[in-house]
Simulated assay, not measured.
Amino acid sequence: MRGTVPWESVVGHAPLRASHPRPATDDLAIIQYTSGTTGTPKGASLTHRNLLANAAQAQAWVPSITRGDGCVVYAVLPMFHAYGLTLCLTFAMSMGARLVLFPKFDPDLVLEVTKKRPATFLPLVPPIADRLLAAATAKGVSLAGTEIAISGAMALPHELVVPFEKATGGYLVEGYGLSECSPVLMANPVAGNRVPGTVGLPLPGTECRVVDPDEPTADVAPGQPGELVVRGPQVFGGYYGKPEETEAVFADGWFRTGDIVTIDDAGFVRIVDRIKELIITGGFNVAPTEVEGALRQHPDVVDAAVVGLPSDHSGEEVVAAIVVDPGKDVDVEAIREFARGILTPYKVPRRIFVVDELPKSLIGKVLRRQVKERLVALTSGS
């Protein structure tokens, strides 16, 4: 690629002079792209301070972990994802830990490594915990010695926590964050006082409020649902090259997460709903608009609406409702195959339903919430 510097020329270069400028803490470190509700990628500008702060916050949350080679971090998550970037790479480096890199999540490969050196710290998503536990049980491999597993990106079922902790003898706790926040904002305590069904408490140095989504500077009554707004050293300063989008997600210096939550008297946060219409499947974000655009490219599809429906295995599954040309005898599996030729595999709808029409607003916008309600009713008996 033009402009690329060969690695060999870098390692063969003379050492940098002491006077050579070094990055400052508030310099841009990475641009972490995240899909918005429109499906248009936005680059979250994260500084060295943001990333270092989040690693330090994670360290403070797990004080029982020993620094150095005795700390073993398993990297089973992709590092292009903010979750894997911080909790696998940056956290491990800040701890001086032994980082075990996996090319992808392969339960058999993870079990082979576990036999030799169990994980001290294992960031994962619920489907990974489920598959790892099932494989260990089937092969008779012990998971004992896995000290702390932290789950993020999607809701953690309590019925998975109990057998996983019994098998490992350690903890499996849920956390919460966003790419714009480097990404971790809160987590359940790694202790007996964690609260299942919640995403825990704010990390050190993190402030949060619950506000009226229509008046984001006004707090709601204690215990009532509202939009979560946050600020802290891990929160980004804005989207790269998008000042208007940046302004829209801040209110008086507080970052608007777009998530509706409640906070109990002890400070534990529970996610109630999402303002944003992103679908989270297997820990990855799927923008409905992108999938709808792919489906509409099919010559027999007149219109499409894509929503996320609850799944026992992946948090949510991508489901589509489509309107087709009148009189057409449509094969939905053929349409799925068509979409597979355009989309990344995890974005392809698991199920497609043919409907007569889609609910729309007065200005013609598809009402995805109503589509979701209808599909839930349609599938409740299946």
Results as ranks from 00 to 15, higher is better:
27 D>R: 10
30 I>F: 06
104 K>R: 15
64 S>I: 11
16 L>Q: 14
292 E>W: 05
332 V>D: 06
145 G>W: 02
76 V>P: 03
310 P>F: 12
147 E>G: 07
278 L>E: 01
200 G>V: 10
90 T>S: 14
326 P>K: 02
316 E>A: 00
283 G>F: 01
109 L>E: 15
272 V>A: 15
52 L>S: 08
124 L>A: 11
236 F>S: 07
289 T>V: 15
94 S>M: 10
379 T>A: 09
54 N>E: 12
42 K>N: 04
244 E>I: 13
140 G>E: 11
285 N>P: 09
199 V>P: 02
349 P>G: 07
153 A>E: 06
350 R>V: 13
170 G>Q: 00
262 T>G: 02
179 S>E: 07
127 P>I: 10
80 F>R: 14
172 L>P: 01
356 D>Q: 12
96 G>N: 06
104 K>D: 15
236 F>L: 13
149 A>P: 13
358 L>V: 10
7 W>Q: 15
132 L>P: 01
255 F>C: 05
192 G>R: 09
14 A>D: 11
31 I>H: 02
282 G>F: 04
336 R>Q: 12
7 W>V: 15
100 V>R: 00
228 L>F: 03
236 F>Q: 04
303 D>M: 14
100 V>S: 00
83 Y>F: 12
82 A>C: 12
319 V>E: 00
217 T>P: 05
27 D>E: 14
305 A>W: 02
121 F>E: 00
141 V>Y: 04
81 H>P: 04
